[in-house]
Amino acid sequence: MAIPILTPGNHAGKEATVIETKPSDAMRGIGIVQSDTPILHQPSQPLNLPTEHDLATAIVNDLIAAMHRARRVHNFAKGMGIAAPQLGIGRRVAVVQPPEPNTETITLLNPTVVAHSDDEDEQYEGCLSFFDVRGKVQRPLRIEVEATALTGEVHREQYQDGLARLIQHEIDHLDGILYTARMKPEVQPIPVERYRQTGRNWSYQ
């Protein structure tokens, strides 16, 4: 699916033209590193907190700004997240915006999944770093995540369903893993045009 970009006409009286660009090119244009970049395939370096408090804050601000840019390109009805490697930053930081309106962004510093449910489901996922396709990924329905606060304290939080999926996706980025590595060997990603035609959203009834 190409995203139309309108360019203004010139002073000679020419009409505005529409340039078609792929979703992945649109993401690259707003500063999102794409899947052929080595940093996406490398584990990220943990932060030393609270010593690197200012660095962590700066990275989080950059990630939130990138999410705002991405939302101007695409409507993320299921929520969204972005990890530092997707901005070319090899540190263990990610942010996740839940799908519910007026909810706070979740900040993940040095996150690790320390427990998960045996119950799993398989749903389509997308990724800002290769936005032209979607793929079915099987993940636990509930997880427990250990992360570090800016002040250095370690804390644990539990997440479930769609939010657990979003957070697992971003933690995978910090481990140098793309969601395609989680797909069953016989399953291949599908073009975003075909995914849109399925009309499927995440469901946890």
Rank of each mutant, 00 (worst) to 15 (best):
Q86W: 07
R71H: 07
A164H: 02
Y159L: 11
S117Q: 05
R71T: 06
T148R: 01
T148V: 05
E144I: 02
M67G: 12
P38S: 11
R69L: 12
H74R: 10
Q138T: 15
A115S: 08
A115R: 03
E146Y: 02
V145Q: 01
F131K: 02
K78I: 03
Q158S: 14
R156S: 11
L109W: 00
E153N: 12
L128E: 10
L40P: 04
R134I: 05
G31N: 11
Y159C: 12
I106K: 03
G162S: 08
G81A: 10
Q158Y: 08
D54R: 06
Q168I: 09
V96R: 04
R139S: 04
P38R: 12
T148M: 04
N102Q: 15
E170L: 03
T105C: 13
I167N: 03
V96I: 12
I143K: 07
H53C: 10
D62I: 06
T151W: 00
R165M: 03
E146G: 03
V114S: 13
I39A: 03
G88L: 09
E125T: 07
H53M: 11
I32S: 06
R165A: 10
V113A: 14
E146S: 08
L128D: 02
E144L: 06
V60F: 06
Q158N: 07
E170N: 04
T148N: 05
Q45P: 07
H74G: 10
A149T: 10
E100G: 13
P43Y: 05
V95S: 11
Q42I: 02
V137G: 06
E125G: 12
T103L: 11
M80K: 03
R69V: 02
P98R: 13
V137K: 00
N102Y: 13
V154H: 02
V113K: 05
D132F: 03
T112N: 10
Q123Y: 13
T107R: 09
P46F: 09
